[in-house]
């Protein structure tokens, strides 16, 4: 709303940091490739080893782009939920979206043993996992939105979301109880989260949905800002509460749903990044916060992914563990330093 100029420096610095980290992320991995060669591959020139080209173009670049999309998408979802519910503990998963996605995947992986071998071959395809996760997320979210429209209080939606989450976890537990160890392990691997393994086609689908979600987010800047005064004031400022609420819920489900479908339930980012942005920029104005959260979300997940791939080693840690291991202390430190947390 005011003093937009003073934020320019922060935005430029963060953007540079984002580009640098993206390069670092591509350069590091279990196979070490000289920096010069990576540069040649990226600008489309010949390289000395064809395998390097494959690693960079079909593995590392898509993964780094996925990290950016997942990181910023989940963070924006978190910001939307924190403002809508006026609750600093809200995140992208409060609506039961991740539990819905998990249920979809669990039904596919764990349920396949009941349905016999015909489905089993499908299970291993990336697409079927993504579709199952999307369907699950969409179904649970639809139930939450239908319930949400029959309650007046926004806080009730939060609780309804949490209840749906509990319900789906319970169903997953029952499924797991009756499943083979191998399938449980497969499900567990999905729940660890993974940014890799996306083909360019999958990435394109992801990107299109992501752009729709981000575009929608910019369209709701006004209602988001007015929600800072509470629903009654927002209404008196001409905001259509129910309509805005439904659009915000829809955007969140799109962004969270697509991220979870392609890379599993990645914890923590969505809750923490909005707080990091609010503390760095010292504002609640969504016109500043939305771009800030997009960039910081991308940066944070790129850093986490760079750490997770344990450069120059053969191992890759689950991304979900890294986001929490490194993110939680950062937020605790920020809180102790700044003393106060805001919606």
């Amino acid at each position: 709303m005011k003093n937009n100029k003073t934020y320019k420096k922060q935005f430029i610095l963060l953007s540079i940091l984002l580009v640098v980290l993206w390069f670092v992320n591509i350069c590091l991995g279990s196979v070490s490739i000289p920096f010069q060669e990576i540069f040649y591959i990226l600008i489309g020139e010949e390289t000395s080893k064809e395998s390097w080209q494959t690693i960079i173009l079909n593995f590392r670049v898509p993964k780094a782009i996925t990290a950016i999309l997942v990181g910023s998408g989940l963070s924006i979802s978190g910001l939307l939920m924190q403002t809508l519910f006026r609750n600093p503990l809200a995140g992208p998963f409060v609506l039961g979206i991740s539990s819905g996605a998990s249920l979809g995947v669990a039904l596919l992986i764990l349920g396949s043993s009941f349905l016999g071998g015909s489905l089993l071959s499908l299970v291993f395809s990336n697409w079927s996992l993504a579709i199952a996760a999307s369907l699950g997320a969409f179904l649970v979210l639809s139930a939450v939105i239908i319930a949400a429209n029959s309650v007046r209080n926004t806080m009730s939606i939060l609780i309804i979301g949490l209840m749906f989450g509990s319900l789906t976890s319970a169903v997953i537990s029952v499924l797991a109880y009756f499943s083979e160890a191998e399938q449980i392990q497969q499900y567990l691997f999905w729940s660890f989260g993974s940014l890799g393994n996306l083909t360019w086609e999958e990435l394109l689908v992801f990107f299109i949905i992501y752009v729709i979600g981000i575009f929608g987010t910019f369209m709701v800047i006004k209602p988001l800002n007015s929600f800072l005064l509470g629903e009654n004031y927002a209404k008196s400022l001409g905001i259509h509460i129910k309509k805005s609420r439904n659009i915000i819920l829809l955007i969140t489900s799109l962004l969270t749903g697509v991220a979870t479908a392609f890379s599993g339930p990645i914890a923590f980012i969505g809750l923490a990044v909005p707080h990091i942005a609010k503390m760095l920029f010292n504002t609640s104005n969504h016109k500043i916060l939305i771009p800030a959260v997009i960039i910081i979300g991308a940066i944070v997940l790129l850093i986490c992914d760079t750490i997770a791939q344990l450069p120059s080693s053969e191992y890759t840690l689950p991304i979900n563990a890294i986001t929490s291991l490194f993110g939680a202390p950062v937020v605790i430190w920020l809180l102790i330093r700044k003393k106060k947390i805001y919606v």
């Binding site: 709303m1 005011k2 800002n225 007015s226 929600f227 005064l229 004031y233 010292n282 104005n285 805001y342």
Partner: peptide
């Protein structure tokens, strides 16, 4: 609700 709005921003709303 708690937020970091300044007085100016609040009035600007």
């Amino acid at each position: 609700p708690e937020s970091q709005l300044t007085v100016f921003e609040l009035i600007a709303l």
